[in-house]
């Protein structure tokens, strides 16, 4: 039974993106990604106002023994970041799809969404990788 939420879309590099309905999209990493990384000790977030290209490295999640780039699944401008992560990076470990969101973005081109996977597609990807 999959726990992958169906209300959002996914990148192959394990980021999720959720339409908030007000023109903004929230971005985070998947539960699978946080499990691979282990206990996170630091999250480096982009600054509000930064313009991000699709596929650009926009954030870093750090565990004790690894550091991983987070790639922006779409093109747009950062409009908010999750400041909770600054003091409590473990929030991503605890709730990657909820309280552990990373930043919000204003999309430049909605058609980019079509390149992303839905929950079933992402589950299939995970099955393939396993």
């Amino acid at each position: 039974m999959s726990n992958t939420p169906t209300d959002r879309r996914y990148a192959k590099s394990h980021e999720w993106l959720k339409d908030e309905g007000d023109g903004s999209f929230t971005i985070g990493i998947t539960d699978h990604a946080q499990a691979l990384l282990g206990d996170l000790v630091f999250v480096d977030l982009p600054e509000v106002g930064t313009a991000l290209e699709v596929g650009s490295d926009c954030a870093v999640v750090e565990s004790v023994k690894a550091a991983s780039d987070v790639y922006c699944p779409v093109t747009g401008e950062v409009i908010a970041v999750n400041e909770v992560l600054d003091g409590a990076p473990e929030t991503i470990n605890e709730d990657a799809f909820g309280a552990g969101w990373m930043f919000k973005i204003k999309l430049t081109d909605n058609s980019e969404l079509e390149n992303l996977l839905d929950a079933a597609g992402y589950d299939a990807l995970l099955a393939e990788e396993a």
């Binding site: 000790v41 630091f42 750090e62 004790v64 023994k65 690894a66 550091a67 780039d69």
Partner: peptide, 12 residues
């Protein structure tokens, strides 16, 4: 803070 260092972060 070893994630800053070359043995983990390599080219970055």
């Amino acid at each position: 803070l070893q994630a800053r260092e070359q043995h983990i972060r390599r080219s970055k």
